[in-house]
Design a protein around this nucleic acid. Structure first.
Length: 580
RNA sequence: CGGAGCGUAGCUCAGCCUGGUAGAGCACUUGCUUUGGGAGCAAGACGUCGCAGGUUCAAAUCCUGUCGCUCCGACCA
């Protein structure tokens, strides 16, 4: 390709609406342009990089036994009602109406469609296992699209769905995808690693995210450098001990705490109740019903864990400013700051307590009477707990749950997610097969996603320098930028450039010939901004010595004999391609 | 949905407080010079100042509303 024949609108300055580096570089290097918030046009350089990622994904999915299909983005709402997600995922569902006023859904994901297909087409164990995948555009009504391609209303995803006859089979399918993902990200030149993850609304019981460490990421990941434990903060646990039991204290005792409504105030004079001897009582509205959540005073509730453990689809703190919620507090008899679960808890309210409180005694908590607390509270004796869950958020420095060394936390970008789904969808949508004995069972499913457009941006986020993008060879829009410093067709410089261009093209190398009649510095800056892994500069000065210059994007200039240039480039390309 | 900020040339921004005929740099067009790290000079073209009301002799500027964008939070497969 000749530079003048394609379209690479580079920018010297960053557009004002880009905040993070990778977003700025996407725009500055002319990879994408914004249509409106969360919607982008891919320009030639962005599209080529995207296609290269897709090719890697496709090759690895095929190698892992995936079967490529293409499902409709426009879907009937009925299948979403059947799976139950018409309600649970309603916030992200784009809905449209046709001319007959009938409603349709723009697919945010495809469990419903593929399970519908499986229900119709898979009948016998002889047809299993199967793993279908596609690379396709998804639509999600994100409340707040962010950071360019990182969180967009419309994006490209590789999604795969496995169907197995048994749990063990499903785990084997899961493992295959896990391994394929490891290879895919490695081949994309990305430092990505798997972390244990929450399954969220999608359901299921076993899940890993593949994340790329980056300060601009939206996920927090807890990890242990000693043993390799890594988990999303929504899932992570630590090896902290439970609250130490003390000698069984006397009966609970009410005491006056006028004006004291915070853990901190109660920990000071004259009360001096350490935060780790307090029970924090939160009123939450879970799927419309009030519940109490108890965690230790020095811990923070992890809402994701609460939803995952309790099965609640929606959960939010009750708000005293809302009249409906205020009634709940009145029922308990106190406002936040004096709440507790010892007395006055309506019998139909569920009470969830964090595991760390199990067995705790000699605790202090609100008396459900403004201005009063109870002391000498025993969880066992005085509180009726519906369910015990791990509900607290892990903090930096806590002991690793596996090896007890210190945990670290860092931000990361989620680029892939693998789930073992079980039979949630196959049961609801009738994806059944008959076994050897003629008995019917729901297929055991898994689903596996890679955010292809997000992966593209993650590569840029992780691979850049002050001059621009530094593409890994495997996903660069062009591998070699051929830069003749004179472009008149009859000049020796341009004639040599044309010759090398033809030779590299014949070898199957993606090469772009910068045939613009621009000054050298301008062309160098542009090629570095776009980030081609290798640049071959041909100028009169060096050519007088029979030499040309190879500049690896992240390395030093190499002067090589003109006749050796192609061989040297091929060698560098080979050396720069990740071996998986 | 709550909070904050911003909408002026293709891009980055100034002008707004204190109302008086719309600016700079980059990019673009033409010419000359320059030619190994985002060139110089000259000439030129490019705007319903997001939109709609209002106040005023007069509005980019003040007021009201509205739309859009960005960030923080909430939410998030």
């Amino acid at each position: 390709m000749r530079w003048t024949q394609t379209f690479i609108p580079t920018l010297k300055e960053s557009p004002a609406d880009a905040e993070i580096l990778s977003h700025k570089l996407l725009l500055r290097a002319g990879l994408v342009r914004k249509l409106t918030g969360g919607l982008y046009t891919f320009l030639p350089m962005g599209l080529r990089a995207l296609r290269k990622i897709e090719k890697i994904v496709r090759e690895e999915m095929d190698r892992a036994g995936g079967i490529e299909v293409l499902m409709p983005a426009l879907q009937p709402p009925e299948i979403w009602q059947q799976s139950g997600r018409y309600e649970t995922a309603r916030d992200v569902l784009f809905k449209v109406r046709d001319s007959a006023k009938r409603e349709w859904v723009l697919g945010p994901t495809h469990e419903e469609v593929i399970t519908h297909l499986a229900a119709n087409e898979i009948n016998t164990y002889r047809q299993l296992p199967k793993n279908f995948y596609q690379i396709q555009t998804k639509f999600r009504d994100e409340i707040r699209p962010r950071f360019g391609l990182m969180r967009a209303k419309e994006f490209i995803m590789k999604d795969a769905y496995s169907f197995d006859t048994t749990d063990e089979g499903a785990m084997a399918s899961y493992k295959k995808m896990y391994d394929a993902y490891t290879r895919i990200f490695a081949r994309c030149g990305l430092q990505a690693f798997p972390v244990e993850a929450d399954t969220g609304v999608i359901g299921g019981n076993h899940s890993h995210e593949f994340v790329v460490p980056a300060e601009t990421g939206e996920d927090n990941v807890a990890f242990c450098e000693a043993c390799g434990y890594a988990a999303n903060i929504e899932k992570a646990t630590s090896g902290l001990p439970k609250t130490a039991a003390r000698d069984v204290g006397p009966e609970i005792e009410k005491f006056a705490t006028p004006g004291v409504v915070t853990i901190e105030a109660l920990s000071k004079e004259p009360y001096k109740v350490a935060a780790n001897r307090q029970i924090k009582t939160l009123v939450y509205i879970a799927d419309g019903k009030p519940v109490l959540i108890l965690i230790r005073g020095d811990d923070q509730l992890n809402e994701a864990k609460f939803k995952a453990r309790s099965g609640a689809v929606e959960a939010r703190p009750a708000d005293v400013k809302s009249e409906a919620d205020l009634a709940h507090f009145q029922k308990l008899g106190a406002m936040p700051g004096s709440l507790g679960a010892v007395k006055n808890v309506p019998s139909d309210w569920k009470v969830y307590a964090d595991e760390r409180l199990r067995g705790a005694n000699d605790m202090t908590t609100g008396a459900n009477e403004d201005g009063f607390h109870f002391r000498s509270v025993s969880m066992e004796r005085d509180v009726k707990v519906t369910d015990w869950f791990d509900l607290r958020t892990v903090n930096v420095g806590e002991p690793c749950p596996k090896c007890a060394k210190s945990l670290k936390i860092r931000r990361a970008i989620e680029v892939g997610h693998v789930f073992k789904l079980g039979t949630k969808y196959s049961e609801k949508m009738g994806a059944l097969f008959v076994d050897e004995g003629g008995k019917q069972h729901p297929a055991v499913m898994g689903c596996y996603g890679i955010g292809v457009t997000r992966t593209l941006q993650a590569v840029i986020e992780q691979s850049n320098d002050k001059d621009g993008i530094v593409w890994p060879v495997s996903v660069a829009p062009y591998t070699v930028c051929l830069t003749p410093l004179a472009v008149a067709p009859e000049s020796p410089v341009m004639q040599l450039a044309e010759k090398i261009y033809a030779e590299l093209t014949a070898k199957g190398i993606d090469v772009i010939l910068d045939d613009r009649d621009e000054r050298p510095g301008f062309k160098f800056k542009d090629s570095e901004l776009v980030g081609f892994p290798l640049r071959l500069a041909i100028g009169e000065k060096s050519l007088a010595k029979g030499e040309v210059e190879i500049k690896p994007r992240a390395g030093q200039i190499l002067a090589v004999k003109a006749e050796d240039a192609v061989a040297k480039l091929l060698e560098l390309i080979e050396a720069g391609t990740p071996k998986v």
